[in-house]
Design a protein around this nucleic acid. Sequence first.
RNA 1: GACCUGGUAGCUCAGCUGGUAGAGCAUCUCCCUUUUAAGGAGAGGGUCAUGGGUUCGAGCCCCAUCCAGGUCACCA
Length: 562
Amino acid sequence: MALSEQELVRREKLQQLKALSINPFPADEVEIDSDASTIKADFQEGKQVKIAGRLMSRRIQGKASFAELQDSSGRIQVYFNRDEICPEEDKSKYNEVYKKLLDIGDFIKVEGTLFVTQVGEKTVSVKNFELLSKALKPLPLPKKDKDGNEYDGFTDPEQRYRQRYADLVVNPHVKDVFVKRTKLFNAMRQFFNDAGYFEVETPILQPIPGGAAARPFITHHNSLDIPLYMRIANELYLKRLIVGGFEGVYEFSKNFRNEGMDRTHNPEFTAMEIYVAYKDYNWMMDFCEQLLEYCALAVNGTTKATFGEHKVDFKAPYKRITMRDAILEHTGFDIDAKTEEQLRVAAIEMGIEVDDSMGKGKLIDEIFGEKCEGNYIQPTFITDYPKEMSPLCKEHRENPELTERFELMVCGKEIANAYSELNDPIDQRERFEAQLKLADRGDDEAMFIDNDFLRALEYGMPPTSGMGIGMDRLIMFLTNNQSIQEVLFFPQMKPEKKKVALTDDAKSVLDILKKAEKLPLSDLKAQAGLSNKKWDKSIKELTKNTLAKVEKTAEGLFVEIV
RNA sequence: GACCUGGUAGCUCAGCUGGUAGAGCAUCUCCCUUUUAAGGAGAGGGUCAUGGGUUCGAGCCCCAUCCAGGUCACCA
């Protein structure tokens, strides 16, 4: 792998440091007693501090220099003065080590005293410093002017996602997103724990991928010699725990779906699912709006949030509307008591593409998705979904065509989905069988039958309400990010191709050359039998890697092995 | 999967009708003891994503491929 000029320079500095008996990667524990934000928040002139961090900028002015140190709390200016650091005759620690051998990106420890500069910047006057770790690659460091405008930003999404470590170092707003992400998880845990519910863990490797309609990742267990699936949801396992006697369980579940990727879908993503016994979906709506208000406050300090062009408020309560009323409101069409054929005709009249695999539920879902969904910007509960598209949900207490289900829509996107859970094992088996019929009709997202889950229900499950929340989507809303990649540390990417050290063409030219040691250029070219372009590339590659060299003599051009 | 856009120095980007690869920051050398996008003077740094083709000549035109972003389709 060819190193850039700057990388070579830094490696050379590494050697020079070693020659000065300075270990560029020391093992010792580093004693520190403050950090950047504490210094600024609790500033005391003359106070002595020991801090450590990454060198992020330098302004060298001969015998003095200002620099910035970045730690996990932020940045603080540090002042290097030659005679402070080197009170004796020998000024090499400042002149050589600091000025020549340190680079932006290096980790150092600084001991010094606090003061304020003439322009009013809180600063650490360095009495002593030591190198903690050398950075061999230059950071893609943006510059900011005094108005805060950024120049040379590290903005290329491909590089930012592939090298998130560098992204996090140089783009503070990126780090903020992930701090908020963790705050969200902590707040949610707090809310559930305060309510007395248990956090649990259920299998990620499942013999039957259940609880949702999605294509799974499949793998194989060698010693059991069985296929296993990465979970697409954890719903059926959490319900088994309710059967087992837990009255409130929740899990943050990494789920895996082998489907397309786009701005809102990553193959692995995080859902939170919670199941509470003796509750129904009406209770869950109350609980949900309380939860989200609490979480928004914990993350942003306010219930208000901005998402793209939209302003959203997570303050409870949220509007509630049935799916029937939502469709009626936005299309003028009443889906109540309509046959499949009537629904299909209505959908076609609305300009919606339909096909024969679509049952009633799917048709209604299409109409809603096409004509209504996008209109719900403020958090809104859409309730009472058609039975056919909710195979794990209890039938509506008033209308057997419907289920006791709600989804919470924000900015036209679903972020929560909840049921009064179906606990009738006979009904549940029929629903699974209906799913199989849908699958036969060509619906490739219909569910499998999980007989062990049915057996659990047969032992009896108390009335229960459950809810799932898309955590990635929720944090997108709370941090105003339009792409799921911005809220995942390491979004899925195609692997980078390794660049080959030497191309095959160059190798074959080298092989010919090795036999002869030295050849007239034209002979070598003829023997290689390459196109002009390939020949040119190959010979340049060899000379560049100092494997061969071209010599001009009186007799003409010769290629010689090095 | 279809279409659109992009890939040039460590980073951000120019690059005209096809005619010797450019800038700012970063790096290196020199000057500079309260700067903050520090400043001044000078220098080096390139597989123009990859592979073909057209051409006297390709960063630029054509074909294919790879990677990314976006739109749509599919999908919760």
